[in-house]
Computed example of a mutant assay.
Amino acid sequence: MPDSSDTPLDALDFVAFDTETTGCTAASGRMVEIGAVRFRSDGVELDRFQCLINPLRTIPWAVTRIHGITDAMVRDCPSESDVLPRFLRFLGDPATTVLMAHNAAFDLSFVGAALGRCGIEPPEHDVIDTVRLSRRRAPELPSHSLRSLVRCFGIGSTTDHRGLSDSIDLMRIYLRLIARPPAIETVGELFQFARPSRMKSYLEQSLRRSSRPTLSRGWWRASSLTDDSLPRRERWDRRNAVPQSPPENSSGADDSCEDTVPTESSRIVAQQITALIAAGKSISLVYDGGRNAGQRRNVTPVKLVTVTEVAYLFAYCHLDRKQKQFRLDRIREIVCE
């Protein structure tokens, strides 16, 4: 951690990093790549890190369509136990290096789970979430996904969704955000916009969240659908439901929760959304339900859940400016931003 809030940003190194994975939850997924770039706040790039990882399991086709990493590409690659020590060495001294990731909880949950499996102590670096920084420094933007920010800032980028290319995009976005008037010049000013967390405590919190059921409003029990749960029909059963019915005033795109067996089309939609959540992407969809039925809307997906055998996408709707729920079998069209 930097010694003082008055420390100028020019006195520090920064590491932007990104992971590619087999799914959207660290409890069941594995990393297939880590990418990172070390740089200074004046834009000088110091070093790069990129390494494919053998996850010792099959990569779902829906996820491969997002990041392009196939089973053949990782078959002869090192395991996480070999890659993590190299990655931690790349991160450098916690006293002079600040880490950043876009939607940091996602990447850190996978890194933390891997460190735990390998028996490696998490480092003490400060880490900032650039989603939070973007929302504070550019609140007028309609979306704060990585791809949206690349477009909004006119950053020349490849179309690859890979660990290193995304890290380089993130470095450029960060530099644009801190340069916005009034420019951020010290660690204290940066941390006012993006409150840091110690990497070690962030990892511990992320692991606790990923290992427990998610409760919301007390009436449903959420269970994130992973790539392993999608293809088999019997996975869509009542074990993820509770006997209570949702309250009448529950907000959402659709309030009905009648017993319905998920259709093949909803399974395909679930596969697509699972991959997009894993990639941290926002989506545009057309939904047959609610007040704005048939109207295209941009949403930021949060999780997939089942309620009495009905599959839902929980997402922040930018059209209605609130979190809503969308039945998968009523989503007519999905377009990745």
Rank of each mutant, 00 (worst) to 15 (best):
H125Y: 14
V127M: 08
V127Q: 07
D129W: 12
D129N: 10
D129R: 09
D129V: 07
D129H: 11
V131N: 11
V131D: 12
R132H: 15
L133E: 03
S134A: 14
R135D: 11
R135W: 15
R136K: 12
P139K: 02
E140C: 00
P142D: 11
P142I: 01
S143G: 01
S143T: 02
S143Y: 04
H144N: 07
H144G: 03
S145V: 01
R147G: 05
R147P: 09
L149C: 05
L149H: 02
R151S: 08
R151A: 08
C152S: 11
F153N: 05
F153R: 08
I155W: 13
G156K: 15
S157D: 09
S157M: 08
T159I: 08
T159G: 03
T159F: 04
T159M: 06
D160R: 08
D160Q: 10
D160I: 03
R162D: 06
G163Y: 03
G163I: 13
L164W: 10
L164S: 10
S165Y: 00
D166F: 01
S167D: 10
D169H: 02
L170F: 00
L170D: 00
L170V: 00
L170I: 00
M171D: 09
M171N: 08
M171H: 08
R172F: 10
Y174A: 07
R176F: 11
L177F: 11
L177C: 05
L177P: 05
I178T: 12
I178L: 04
I178Q: 05
A179K: 15
A179V: 14
R180D: 06
R180H: 12
R180W: 10
P181R: 13
P182T: 00
P182R: 07
P182G: 04
